[in-house]
Design a protein around this nucleic acid. Structure first.
Lengths: 336, 336
DNA sequence: CTGAAAGCGCTTACAG
DNA sequence: CTGAAAGCGCTTACAG
């Protein structure tokens, strides 16, 4: 690998001039620039990032911290889609991304790697299942960072989120519009932001139409197929006309319980979900759900972080991305 | 952020000594070591990685290049599992990982970022769908690298792979053992290593038992649900007793085609897959398949790469990981 | 066991 | 428009 010094020698100019050419400094005579660039190309010269970082205190490296196990969940492509968004935005903006999958086994060591890592200019952190000590270390590190998912008890952070509440409200309103009244919901963990806010959206919709809220139609679960299955079994005796799973995986589990109980979807009961994972289009019948722009969240997170790095004053960025109601066959249409 | 210099001043020793303490050089008096460590802890000192890299030409940073879209496929968790393996192994060995999702939109820019990135000590590259020019650039970069998936026409590379051929042979042998004779297969793309070798394993098993190979029972497809579906429709008229989908997604598509045709699995026809994605356990009936240790591939790739970096001579590493036959209900049991 | 000094490859005022 | 020089924060022979 040639160095600046060598390029300088080969092109009969100083290191300073080569540096200016490399960095597109306008104060270089164009003939000089061409002469240098010729050598640069011919030698396939690439500046050494470590040296540049040291000199400028500017690395263009962003860290990405995601809990391990996320997206490994059956059928849930959150992780790959989100990472795709982040990676594409970084490539586009000439940033580099360094990745950690937060794993409790390695928590301490990882925190050290992240926080002590002099190379990072900022951090994108998935807030779900993020251990609190880890978040605290990150806050203490004084690195700019943005959270994915609104943290429930720390409103002062910068985050990008999806319209959980509003998306849920919309899909329930749609069910009401179809004529359903007795609408059950299998919520996610109410300690998690999506669990909490999707339930709030459900309540919002019922209240807006003055439909009484029946606590026996609300059961809390994990965002898994298995939990959806068991929760639905508990719900069946109450004979709901429709059930809203707070995630597609929950809804898929619910459908399995209904199938086993001999109930038909959507004839006997409507089922809807949230997330719009690819599997949702392939259930029997295909699942009506709420689409969330996962890849876009990654892109926005990068943009927000870069802004934060470049303008350290601008805190409290909150971007909440809209969802989209995806109507398929699992909710039937009681209108016709 | 304090620097070495400051720690030296605060502990009344030279920079050299602080550096030795930080790097666990044994030639330091223990009282000196303790004195310095006290200051290090108290100031929360972290060495600047860029400076260290520049001085040592050693960064402990590994690059990971995966095609975009991989693992975003419905239900296929290859990407998250594999990345988990890589990330965990890196945290464990105190390496850092820099990620790129190869995307043809950004190919040129990305190659530059990767190859010119003076920080990287080596590269893990998923060979599937990797554009050839990208691979060539990587080879030219002279960076040590390991491929995930055996490249079809470049046997001289270092790679970690799964026993595609043997896994396929085993599952077909099992079907033969159950009494099936007329076994069809929906292969993956034969230009891809898994497509090619899984078909070879199918042929191996038939030949080993002297079962004639019937070309009309072999159809090529993409590794997708949709392709499995259409391929199965073409196969149905030949009335196979069993069908081997070269991926679980293919098998799932095949099952859908059979269901629509009114054929029962496994009573009328056995169906088996390959990969053991989480969805395979949830199909109706659950799918017999071949498990591949995806997470472990990530771990092994890291170990191989580190070895390559530390011992530049050792080339032509080939690790082929064993698969495991997972017997579920989709192949029935014609023995009882 | 410890320190002074050179060096890693870049950038950037400062002069001219 | 260009160059000489200092400096970024570390490591590592070389002396002692």
């Amino acid at each position: 690998m040639p160095t600046l010094e060598e390029i300088a020698k080969l092109s009969n100019v100083s290191r300073s001039t080569v540096s200016r050419v490399i960095n597109n400094d306008p104060h270089v005579r164009s003939t000089t620039r061409e002469k240098v660039m010729a050598v640069v190309h011919q030698t396939n010269y690439r500046p050494n990032l470590a040296a540049r970082s040291l000199a400028t205190a500017n690395t263009q490296i962003l860290g990405l911290v995601v809990p391990a196990g996320v997206g490994v969940a059956f059928g849930d492509p959150f992780f790959p889609l989100f990472v795709e968004g982040v990676a594409a935005a970084c490539t586009e903006t000439d940033h580099l991304v360094m990745l950690w999958l937060a794993d409790t086994d390695y928590e301490r060591r990882m925190i050290g790697q992240i926080v002590s890592n002099g190379l990072l200019e900022g951090l994108i952190v998935s807030s779900m299942y993020l251990p609190d000590p880890m978040l605290d270390s990150i806050i203490n590190s004084a690195l700019p960072f943005v959270l994915i998912g609104q943290p429930l008890n720390r409103p002062e952070m910068n985050y990008v989120e999806v319209e959980n509440r509003n998306g849920a409200r919309e899909i329930i309103t749609y069910l009401l519009h179809l004529g359903c009244r007795k609408i059950a919901t299998i919520t996610g963990p109410l300690s998690s932001p999506p669990g909490f806010y999707r339930k709030e959206g459900y309540l919002d919709a019922l209240r807006a139409r003055s439909v009484p809220v029946d606590p026996s139609l609300i059961v809390e679960a994990d965002f898994t197929e298995a939990d959806g299955y068991y929760a639905m079994q508990r719900l069946i005796p109450y004979r709901p006309e429709a059930v809203f799973g707070a995630s597609d995986m929950i809804a898929i589990g619910a459908m399995r319980a209904l199938r086993e109980a001999g109930l038909r979807v959507p004839e006997d009961i409507a089922v809807v979900g949230f997330d719009d994972i690819p599997a949702a289009a392939h259930t029997q019948p295909p699942l009506t759900t709420v689409h969330q722009p996962t890849r876009r969240m990654g892109k926005i997170a990068v943009e927000m972080l870069i802004d934060l790095i470049e303008h350290p004053g601008n805190n409290q960025h909150h971007v909440v991305l809209p969802t989209e109601l995806i109507i398929r066959e699992s909710c039937g249409s009681m209108l016709d």
